[in-house]
Every structure is written in C-alpha cells, then in structure tokens.
C-alpha cells in the first residue's frame, strides 16, 4: 500500500506552493498600487518585463535540465521572484535593467543551484544586489514622488525603452535621492548635524516612502494572519532595527536617525515581510527564525549607518542566507522524549 510510505502529518497541508505564492502576490498589491501612485506607471512595465523574463528563462533552463517545464512554471515561484525584483528597482530605470536582473536571479541564483527548494540564496535579493553593484547609477535614480503623474503613458514607455525624455525635462529634474540616500550623503559631507534636515518621519510621508511601507506592512500582516509566512522572522527584523536604532538615537540624536525612520524608510517593511520570509532560504526552526530575523535587522542597521550603500536589506538577507544551515543546526527542536 502506497500510503504506508507516507510519514506524519497525515492531514494534507492547507497551503500548496502555488497557493502560497499566489497569496504573497495578492498581499503585495497595496504596496504595488502605492508605488505606482507615487512613482509612476513604470512599476507595472517593470513587473511585466520581469515576469516575462522570469517565465522565459525558467522555461529554457528547465528544458536544458530536462525537467518538467509546465509543472514548475505553474507554481508561481518564478513570477513572485520577478515581481519582488520589479518593485525593488526604480520606476524610471531602463528596460534592460530589470531583464538582466531577473535573468541573473532565475538562471544563476535559482536554477543553477537546482531550482525551487535548492537555492541557497534569495533569488530576488541576489538579482537586486547584482544590479546595485553593477549599475549603481541607474539603481539609485528614484523618481521625485508625484512628478510622473502628469505624464502620458506613452512618455513613460519612451523613457523606459528608448531612454528619451519629454522636452524641457532633464533626468536630474525627475529624480532625487531617497531619504536613506540623503542621510548618507549628509553624513559624508558634514559629520556634525547630519540627521535633522532630511531624515524626519514627516518627510518620509510627504515623499511617499512612509505610505509605501505602511502598504507593505498591511499586506504583510495579512500574510502572517494567513500563516503563509512565519511571524518570527518579521518580528525579529523589526525588533532588532527598533532596539538598536533606539539605543543609538538616545546616545546621540544628532547623528543617528529615529527608530521610526529606520522602520519606515527604504526596504525595511517589504524586506521583513516578503523577502526574508522566503521559505526556501530562511531558517526553519521557530527559534532559528527569530535569530535569523534579528540578525538581518542588526546587519541592516550596521550597513545602513556604517556601510557603503544607503540601504542594506538585500545584503543583510544574503549574508544571513549563508548562516541559515548553522542556525538551523543549533536550534533544532528537541524530539519529544529524547534527552540530548
């Protein structure tokens, strides 16, 4: 009898892979709409290009590896990677940027390691780090919030595909430094009063980043409620960031930003709920997940404040991906009735 070979649990799981991926995609919707609202239609073009690239490259590699193509494409994991990368890059970035990044993420980071379930690193974040390291200029050119709302859709298409701007508009006119970037620049120029000017929470909200983070936060809470993601990881990340930034803020409120700023700026929320919680590359034991998340938060703070790049979620997640086997080894839950 076949069923005898199946070990416990005997009840079928409520979430299949494609169901999980679909729920994550749904939870991303508020964030995506806010992103489009503040930073223009380009985000939809980016996502579309990313999903197409992901499906095509995944199909090609699966074919080369002689694996079932349709079954893997249907599990929605490749489109999810693509969407995560699509929302992580600037909405005014040229088309080849997202195509290159997604191709790298799917072919090298995911499929060459053995496909879904075998990849050591989070594909979306590895793709993001690849782009950030290779094309720093294109990757940090975020649009001035709201500046693209008056544009025709055809103007956006022309900007993304032909890199042509409408008349009387320059690249510097439509892009600006992100809040985290501004803090970094100010710190580099003037060690004394770095934080006060650009890094207030009000500014985060007038520039859209604060609302964006809240959008991801709401979607993330729904994911936790649906038990799609483990709550220990986001809790660990947010705890670490809040604790460490509070400590430094009270130590010197002139050169360290407020905890609220760190929680709402940049990729904190999307990273905590959507990226670090990737079931393949995150730690798997309950205690291990909290440690994994806490270390990501701590590393994010470290790199943001003392590192070379303004935001650090991608690097922190990738670094902790390496540490996952060790964390899992030392936090393995005790088998009931067995003494160690």
């Amino acid at each position: 009898m076949k069923s005898l070979w199946v070990t416990s649990p005997y009840l079928p799981p409520q979430n299949s892979v494609s169901k999980i991926m679909f729920k994550v995609l749904v939870a991303l919707l508020p964030g995506i709409f806010l992103l489009a609202l503040f930073f223009g239609w380009g985000v939809f073009v980016n996502i579309l290009l990313a999903v197409l690239t992901a499906l095509i490259t995944e199909a090609i590699v699966l074919k080369l590896r002689q694996r079932p193509v349709l079954k893997s494409l249907k599990d929605l994991s490749a489109p999810l990677t693509a969407v995560l990368l699509g929302i992580a890059i600037p909405t005014v970035a040229p088309w080849w940027l997202i195509v290159l990044g997604t191709g790298f993420a799917i072919v090298i980071v995911k499929q060459l390691y053995g496909g879904l379930g075998s990849n050591l690193f989070n594909p979306a974040m590895a793709g993001y780090a690849f782009l950030l390291i290779s094309f720093p200029q294109e990757m940090t050119a975020w649009a001035v919030p709201g500046s693209l709302n008056a544009w025709q859709f055809s103007d956006i298409i022309r900007l993304l595909f032909l890199e042509q701007l409408p008349e009387a508009i320059t690249v510097d006119g439509i892009t600006m430094a992100t809040p985290l970037d501004a803090v970094k620049t100010q710190l580099a120029m003037n060690q004394e009063s770095a934080v006060a000017v650009p890094a207030t929470v009000e500014r985060l909200f007038t520039q859209g980043w604060g609302w964006l983070s809240l959008g991801y936060f709401v979607g993330g809470l729904w994911l936790v409620q649906q038990r799609v993601v483990a709550w220990q990881i986001p809790l660990g990340i947010l705890c670490a960031l809040a604790l460490i930034s509070t400590g430094f803020y009270f130590y010197d409120d002139q050169s360290y930003s407020t905890p609220a700023f760190h929680l709402l700026a940049g990729a904190t929320m999307v990273g905590a709920f959507f990226i670090a919680t990737d079931p393949v590359t995150a730690a798997t034991s309950p205690k291990g997940r909290f440690i994994f998340g806490f270390m990501i938060g701590a590393l994010t703070y470290l790199i943001r404040v003392w590192g070379g790049y303004p935001d650090a979620m991608a690097f922190a997640v990738l670094l902790m991906n390496i540490a996952v086997p060790v964390i899992d080894y030392y936090t393995q839950p005790k088998v009931f009735g067995v003494r160690r």
Binding site: I108, F130, I133, S134, F135, P136
Partner: peptide, 15 residues
C-alpha cells in the same frame, strides 16, 4: 559601453 562592474569584481571571477 558603460561596463558590467560585477564582472570585474571578485564575484564575477567566481561566476
């Protein structure tokens, strides 16, 4: 050609 910086950096060597 603006260059693919990653290829010049150490990760490019490994890949």
């Amino acid at each position: 050609y603006s260059g693919l910086l990653l290829a010049v950096l150490p990760p490019g060597a490994f890949i």
